[in-house]
C-alpha cells in the first residue's frame, strides 16, 4: 500500500466531493422547502452542462465565465418548471412529485436530444489536463477550481439563508410549511424561487460535470442515484448536510478504489448508505421534527 497514493485519493475525493456537493445541495433544498423529491434534478445538471458546452464550442466562452449566463437562465427555467408543474400538487407531494419530476427529466432529455444530438461530448478546455504537484500529490486544476466554486456558491447560499428576509422565510418554510403560511409567508413564491436556486446550482454543477466527464442527454440516469444517496446521508433537507455528505461519500469512494479496486468503488455509495441507515437513520444532519 502506497501512502502517497492514499493521500492523492483523499485529496481527489475531497475536491470531487465539493463538486458533487454543489449538485446535491439543490436537491436537498427543493426537498426541504417543497417536500418534492426532484428525480429530475440531474437532468437539470445535464442541461446546464449542455449550455456550457454549446457556449464553449460555438462562442468560445470559458465554462467558468459562462456561469454568469447559464446560472440565471437555469434559475428562470427552474422557476418556470416549478410554477407550471409542481405548484399544483396539493396532496401526497412526496409521491406525486417523483412522477412529475421524472416526466420533467424525460422532457428535458428529449429536448436536449433533439437540439444537441445523442453523441457523447465533453467540454475540453485547454487547461483540462493541467495539473500541479504539492507534497507529491498531483492536483488537476479543474478539480481545484471546481471545489472552490462549490465552496463559494455554498457559502453564498448559506449567507442568503441566514442573513436575508427571503432566507428567513425559506428556512421557516422548510421547518414548518403550514406555520410559515399562517405567519404570512407566501410559500408558493418561496418554493418557486427555491426551485430556481436549485436549478442555478445544478447549472454550475453541470458545467463542472461536463468538464470532468463525457456526457449525452441520457447521462442524468447515471447521476441521480448518487445524488439521492448523498441527500439521504445528509439528512434529506439539510443543504449543509448534503455538502458534507458529498465530501465523505466521494472521499470514501476514491480511497476504496485505491485500496481495493475501482469495481468496489461503485458499491461504496450503497455500502455507506446501508451503514448510515442502520446506525443513524436520520442521516448525518437529519433532525427529527414533527410534521404539522
Amino acid at each position: 500500500m502506497n501512502g502517497g497514493l492514499l493521500l492523492g485519493a483523499s485529496v481527489l475525493g475531497l475536491l470531487l466531493g465539493g463538486i458533487y456537493g454543489l449538485m446535491a445541495s439543490g436537491l436537498a433544498l427543493t426537498f426541504g422547502v417543497m417536500r418534492v423529491i426532484n428525480v429530475g434534478h440531474s437532468a437539470l445538471v445535464i442541461a446546464g452542462a449542455y449550455m456550457s458546452y454549446e457556449l464553449f464550442a460555438h462562442l468560445h466562452i470559458d465554462p467558468f465565465v459562462s456561469l454568469v449566463i447559464t446560472m440565471p437562465v437555469m434559475f428562470l427555467i427552474g422557476m418556470g418548471l416549478e410554477m407550471a408543474f409542481l405548484q399544483h400538487l396539493r396532496e401526497d407531494r412526496e409521491q406525486f412529485s417523483v412522477l412529475v419530476t421524472w416526466a420533467i427529466a424525460l422532457g428535458v432529455e428529449g429536448v436536449l436530444g433533439y437540439f444537441c444530438g445523442t453523441d457523447l461530448v465533453q467540454i475540453s478546455t485547454n487547461y483540462a489536463n493541467s495539473s500541479f504537484s504539492i507534497g507529491g500529490v498531483q492536483i488537476v486544476y479543474i478539480y481545484l477550481y471546481g471545489f472552490l466554486l462549490g465552496a463559494l456558491l455554498m457559502g453564498l447560499l448559506a449567507l442568503l439563508l441566514r442573513r436575508t428576509t427571503f432566507g428567513w422565510s425559506l428556512r421557516a418554510t422548510v421547518l414548518n410549511r403550514q406555520a410559515a403560511q399562517l405567519i404570512g409567508i407566501d410559500v408558493a413564491k418561496v418554493s418557486a424561487i427555491a426551485f430556481g436556486i436549485a436549478a442555478a446550482m445544478a447549472a454550475a454543477g453541470g458545467a463542472l460535470y461536463g468538464m470532468l466527464n463525457t456526457f449525452n442527454p441520457g447521462s442524468w440516469y447515471d447521476l441521480i442515484g448518487d445524488l439521492l444517496i448523498i441527500i439521504v446521508l445528509g439528512g434529506f433537507s439539510s443543504v449543509r448536510g448534503a455538502f458534507i455528505a458529498s465530501l465523505v461519500v466521494i472521499m470514501f469512494q476514491e480511497i476504496l478504489s485505491v485500496i481495493i479496486s475501482p469495481t468496489w468503488a461503485d458499491w461504496s455509495f450503497f455500502m455507506l448508505l446501508a451503514i448510515v441507515l442502520i446506525v443513524r437513520p436520520s442521516g448525518f444532519f437529519g433532525v427529527k421534527t414533527r410534521e404539522a
Binding site: R171, L175, N176, Q178, A180, L182, T289, R290, A292
Partner: peptide, 13 residues
C-alpha cells in the same frame, strides 16, 4: 391570526 394545532414553532430557530 391562527395558532395551529400541534406544535408549530420553527424548532431549530
Amino acid at each position: 391570526v391562527q395558532v395551529p394545532q400541534d406544535r408549530s414553532l420553527f424548532s431549530t430557530m
